[in-house]
Write a protein that binds this DNA or RNA. Structure first.
Lengths: 159, 159
DNA sequence: TATGGATTGTTGTAAATGTCAACGATTAAA
DNA sequence: TTTAATCGTTGACATTTACAACAATCCATA
């Protein structure tokens, strides 16, 4: 019932379970699309010794927003201790630096180095290509609509 | 930066990282909405001693499609060995029965019992309520649009 | 200005999940 | 009949997650 293409299990035309009512469950749909996208994403990022997690941290570190580790944990829905490990790795690789917060010296801001920023450029291209592949069944308009709806569901506002 | 309501970390108005470019990354958006929904979902299902996983298996077992364990693994993107544990649990609780496949006696179909079907009714109500809460920022139309787009991205077809 | 309470990053640990290889039983192919 | 492949299952191992404790620091208020 599945066709193996380049080591990836792809849904064949005859997925009989698609008829089940769980196909109306938003949680299930989100999990499934996220899962299939993650495979492609992580494969693309592996060339840069990154995973989705470290890639996300690197993006935020490069955003100019100077996030603290706590803010990263909240925003990425991760436990603060997981951020420690992620930043440790990126810092060892000189892609990111920790600096004590200006107002609060407990907090440590995470900022991308030049090397980190450069790696992010390359990795970003690969990630965007992987995303396009995961969404190849949707038109550009549909992708835009979906992102707008996801953003609204998460943070409200426009849309 | 987050407000704690009923034990749930909710995004406050001042989430400064929302300005970061990662907010345009589909994988990130899917992961985040799925994560916040999962918390609510699992909390609702806990009253029935179910988790998202076992709930999904129970739905498919109750679908009338008589899925085999292999089909469940493929459809849920899980390792076959994880299905074993999930079905073991549901079977012990008399919510589901295993039966040898009619054409292929290696395969085992998983079917919900009357008790399983009944529990699913109750759990389904709780899950739908949790889903509504996770999507409260969207209108009914927007939810429908989003589900249609997710289905199209996953399996193509209609739209 | 002190003192108590909360917060930040960090470490460690235990539980849950994911991944993978092997096995008997069964099916399909040669 | 032999051979190869598939299904469920078990078990071993790695990764991820969740949670509690801790020192350093901040904050509120007396």
């Amino acid at each position: 019932m599945t066709i193996d293409v380049q080591g990836v299990k792809q849904d064949g035309a005859g997925e009989k379970l698609v008829a089940a009512s769980i196909t109306n469950d938003m949680g299930f749909l989100l999990a499934k699309l996220h899962a299939s996208g993650s495979v492609l994403n992580n494969r693309a990022l592996a060339d840069f010794n990154l995973k989705e997690r470290s890639y996300s941290v690197l993006i935020l570190a490069d955003s100019g927003l100077e996030p603290t580790q706590r803010e990263l944990a909240d925003f990425l829905s991760l436990d603060p201790s997981q951020i420690v490990a992620l930043v440790d790795d990126l810092e060892k690789r000189k892609l990111v630096v920790r600096a004590p917060g200006k107002q609060d010296r407990r907090a440590k801001t995470v900022t991308a180095t030049k090397a980190g920023s450069k790696l992010l450029d390359e990795a970003g291209k690969a990630a965007r290509s992987a995303e396009a592949q995961a969404l190849e069944r949707l038109s550009a308009d549909e992708v835009a609509t979906m992102k707008a709806l996801l953003r609204k569901a998460l943070w409200g506002g426009l849309a």
